[in-house]
Nucleic acid binder design. Structure first.
Lengths: 356, 356
DNA sequence: ATGAAAGCGCTAACAC
DNA sequence: GTGTTAGCGCTTTCAT
C-alpha cells in the first residue's frame, strides 16, 4: 500500500494511540479506555496497565487526534462565538467571560468576527459542517435569523446574544436595553436637561420594536412630557470615529442646540467627547454626556463617562453555560435571560461625587 | 447493527455525501470529485453529472463534515492565534488583520486567549492534536518557547509574533520596539525634556536584551548624555488601570519630578492621562506624554496621544501569509520580519500642529 | 467518465 | 480485565 506518498512532505507522522499501545504492550482500545477515564461501566483496566499506558503516553507526548476523535464522538468540544467585530471592546469583554466559563467546562472557544451580513451567513453555513458543538450568535437581521434556524435544524446548539430567540428551543441572553436607555435619559432629565440628543447606530438596533435603548430614550422623554426631536438624533458608524462625526453633525445642525447627549455606546461616546473637546466645549458644563455599555475605557476618559453598565461578565457566563447545557443534554432550558443594566455615574453629566 | 442507539438523542443525522450521491444517482466518490473541483488530473465528471450533483447538494443543503474531511486530508484549514488577552485593543486589531488575510486564502482563524504561562503551555499542547494547521504565537517566556518547539516538531506550522524565532524554521514577525522606544524618547528630548519617566510593564518585555522599547529609551537618554534614573521608571499592570496606578506612583515619589512620560503602550498611557487629569495637571504643559503602539483610542483622548504607531495591519497580514506559506509548502521561508514603528505626533507633547 | 474500496485515528460495542 | 472489531464521513487510488 503506497499510501504515505502524498503525506511524505508533511512531516514525521504524528504519534497515534497505536504507538502508545505498542509501547505499553496493550491493545489500542485499552489506551483509549485509560485516556478517557472509562466512561463506560466501572473499572476496566487494572492499575498496573493504567500506569503503563499513562507512562507510555507521557513518554511519547501523545495527544489524541482532534479530527478523529470528533468524527467518532460526534462532539468537538469547541464553541464558536460569532460576533460583528473584535475591535469593539464590549465584545472583547464578553468573549473573555465566555472563554473563562467554557474553559472550566472543558470547551475551547473560537471567535469568528464577521464584518457583514454576507459573511455572517457564510459563517453560519460553514458551522453546519460540525466544526463546533455550539454557537453564540450576535444576530441582528432577519436573514441571519433564518441562518440561525437552519443551523439549529442541523443539530448545532445555539444561544442568541442580545436579541430575542428566533426559535422556541434556542435560548437567548440579553440586556434590558430599553430599560437602560430609559435610565440614561431619565438621569439627564433629572439634571434638568430638556434638549437631549441621541447619537445612534440605528442599523444595529434590534428589529423588535420597543426593545432598544432608543425606545427607552423616547419613553423617558414622553414620561417627562417631551417629544423625541428628529433633529436631535444623529446616526453614526459604530466606532469612536463614528461617534466623533455624529457629534460634529449634531453641533452643526440649526435649531435649538442640545445640552446633553446620550450615545449608543461608550466607544461612540468617547468619539463624541473628543469632538466636544476639540471645539472647546466643556463637559459637562456646556454639554452633558452619557454613554452606554460600561466598557473599561469609560472610566478613563476625562471627565469620566457616566454610562449604563451592562453586566458583561454575567452575560458571557450565562451564555456559555446555557450553551453547554444544551449540548450536554439536561433539561430543554428554553430560556430568555434578560439582565438589567445599571446607571454608573461619573463626571460627564455633572454629578460626579468624586472621580474615583 | 444497532449502531445508531446512543446518537439517537443527538438529532436527525446530518446529511452526508452519501445522501447527495443517492439523490443525484451517482457514487459517493463522484460527489466528492464534483465538490472538490477535481484536484486530481483534468476533467473527470461530465457536465451533466456535475450539474446533477450540484443540484442535489444544494437541495439537501449539504455541508461536508469538518472532522471527517480534516481526518482524511490531514488539513483543517484552521489557523489559531494564541494571544495573552483580547481586551488589549492592540491584539484585537492585529487579529482582525490576520483574519482578513486568512479568510482570503480559505482559512478560518480561531482566537485563543491565554491568561498565563500555564494556560499558554496547555493550549500549545492541545494544538498538538491537529486541530489547526498553523498557529500564530505571541510567545514571551522561555518555557513557552519550548512549547513552541515541541508543537513545531509535531508538524504544526508556526509563526512567532513579536519575538525572535526560537527555531531556524519558524518565521517571526515583529516590530522594531527598540527603535520605537528610541523615537519616542528622542522626541521628548528634542522638546527639551530632561527628566523623562517610563511607565513599564517589565514582565512583558522581550527576554532578549536590547530589543525592547526600554532599551531604546535608555539608548536615547545616553545619546543625549543622560542616564536612566530608576526612580523615573515605574512598573504597572498592562491595562488602563495599571497605567493610572503607575502614574500616581510616579507622581508621589520623592526626588526630581519628571516633566514627560513615555508609556509602555497607549492603553497604559490613557490610564496615565486620567491620573494626570484627576490631579489637575495639564498635558502637555505640566507633563508631556507619549504612548506606544498606536491603537485607535489614542486618537480620541484629550489631548490626542502622541505615540509610536505599529503597522498593525501589516503585522497581521504578514503573519497570516507567512504561516499559510509554511502550511502550503512553497519555499522554506525562514524569515524574521522586523517592521518599523513610526512616531505619530498629536497633542500630548505640545507639538500638535492641529488636532485632526 | 465513473464506481469500488481502502483507510485517516479514534471510540465503544461486544466477545472472551 | 483485555482484545477484536465495526464504523464516524470523507478523499483518493485503482480498476473499469
Amino acid at each position: 500500500m503506497p499510501r504515505r506518498l502524498l503525506e511524505s512532505r508533511t512531516q514525521a507522522a504524528a504519534t497515534t494511540s497505536i504507538d502508545v499501545a505498542r509501547l505499553a504492550q496493550v491493545s489500542q482500545a485499552t489506551v483509549s479506555f485509560v485516556l478517557n477515564g472509562l466512561r463506560t461501566g466501572g473499572a476496566r483496566v487494572s492499575d498496573a496497565t493504567r500506569t503503563r499506558v499513562l507512562a507510555a503516553a507521557a513518554e511519547l507526548e501523545y495527544v489524541p487526534n482532534h479530527a478523529a476523535r470528533s468524527l467518532r464522538r460526534r462532539r468537538t468540544n469547541v464553541l464558536t462565538f460569532v460576533l460583528p467585530a473584535l475591535d469593539n471592546p464590549y465584545f472583547a469583554e464578553v468573549v473573555a467571560a465566555v472563554q473563562v466559563a467554557a474553559t472550566q467546562r472543558g470547551y475551547i472557544v473560537s471567535v469568528l468576527p464577521v464584518r457583514d451580513e454576507e459573511a455572517e451567513l457564510q459563517a453560519l453555513q460553514a458551522l453546519g459542517g460540525g466544526s463546533s458543538d455550539g454557537v453564540v450568535v450576535a444576530a441582528r437581521t432577519d436573514r441571519i435569523r433564518d441562518g440561525v434556524r437552519r443551523l439549529f435544524a442541523r443539530g448545532v446548539k445555539i444561544v442568541v446574544f442580545q436579541d430575542r430567540s428566533p426559535e422556541p428551543l434556542i435560548p437567548a441572553v440579553r440586556v434590558d436595553l430599553e430599560g437602560g436607555g430609559y435610565a440614561a435619559t431619565r438621569h439627564l432629565l433629572a439634571l434638568g436637561h430638556r434638549h437631549i440628543a441621541h447619537i445612534a447606530d440605528r442599523q444595529s438596533y434590534s428589529h423588535r420594536a420597543g426593545e432598544d435603548r432608543f425606545d427607552g430614550y423616547e419613553r423617558a422623554l414622553s414620561a417627562a412630557g417631551l417629544r423625541m426631536a428628529p433633529a436631535l438624533v444623529c446616526d453614526g458608524e459604530n466606532s469612536m470615529a463614528g461617534g466623533e462625526q455624529a457629534m460634529c453633525l449634531l453641533l452643526e445642525r440649526p435649531g435649538p442646540r442640545a445640552t446633553a447627549v446620550f450615545a449608543y455606546n461608550d466607544q461612540m461616546a468617547m468619539g463624541a467627547l473628543h469632538a466636544l473637546h476639540a471645539r472647546g466645549l466643556r463637559v459637562p458644563e456646556d454639554m452633558a454626556l452619557v454613554g452606554f455599555d460600561g466598557v473599561a475605557l469609560g472610566a478613563f476618559t476625562w471627565p469620566g463617562l457616566t454610562t449604563v453598565e451592562h453586566p458583561r461578565n454575567e452575560i458571557g457566563t450565562r451564555a456559555a453555560n446555557l450553551l453547554i447545557g444544551c449540548i450536554e443534554g439536561g433539561p430543554p432550558a428554553l430560556e430568555d435571560v434578560v439582565l438589567p443594566a445599571r446607571l454608573v455615574i461619573r463626571g460627564s453629566c455633572g454629578m460626579a461625587l468624586r472621580e474615583q
